[in-house]
Amino acid sequence: MTGDRNNNEYLPRPARITAVRRETFDVKTFSLEFVDRADAFSYKQGQFAEISVLGQGEVPISITSSPSRKGPMEFTIRAAGRVTSAMHDLGPGDALYLRGPYGNAFPFETLKGRNLYFVAGGIGLAPLRSLINMVLDSIEDFGDVKILYGAKNPEELCFRGELEEWKAIPGVEVYLTVDRASPGWTGPVGLVTALWDAAALSPENAVAILCGPPIMIKFAAAGLSGRGFGDEAIVMTLERYMKCGVGKCGHCNIGGSFVCTDGPVFDYAQVKRMPEKEGVF
């Protein structure tokens, strides 16, 4: 039977790809719109959606576009598994299915008046980009905005055009680093945590927002803590293998929390209360 879609959270809605932008050799940014405008949803910075390639499966992907901007929803996706690889074979006009949005959100109102440090590694810049662009759209409400971004090598930096645009905005500083330089790279080489001094990192009236590979988040959070950032001033978005996105399938359960519904955004104080043996990072 065909049921009422509104009371079945697991049913995705038909969508189509309107544009694909290549970020790196294995990362692309997809613009999506719903086939039926009635299915469209509003979302908050840091939330994610479940994207289906029917026949391949479904994956949770953070929404990288900003709720402060009109325009299509964007998802930046690495070809890593079955579904994401299938997505990389698709182009404008191709069909996908979508449901969401899910999860909590990055803080916004409480960040106003504060200095913000965005610390990202690799594709981890994608969820932060939603909040970054939201902040930049009312930059006068915020203190200094510093974006510290690292990748394995220069070719794996995402959003390169946008990084240049951000740099040009008064009050915004962008610091890039790579693990391994390639010819033509004149910037620093090292982990993103090696950018603290260059960025004149200071905990005063500041909040740091992190996303990246688990090992990066782990060391960046500990490093910021060592530099005097309070646990509530270190905010991160966690990633976890998940299926349903709505707190039922169990995969992302850590202690008594679900990353999908209680997160994916947590502050360091919450993360420290999670059972370490369950592998938070």
Binding site: S52, K243, C244, C249, H251
Partner: peptide, 9 residues
């Protein structure tokens, strides 16, 4: 009640 989700096509 944990479950996995797969597509069969």
């Amino acid at each position: 009640t944990c479950f996995n989700v797969v597509d069969r096509a």
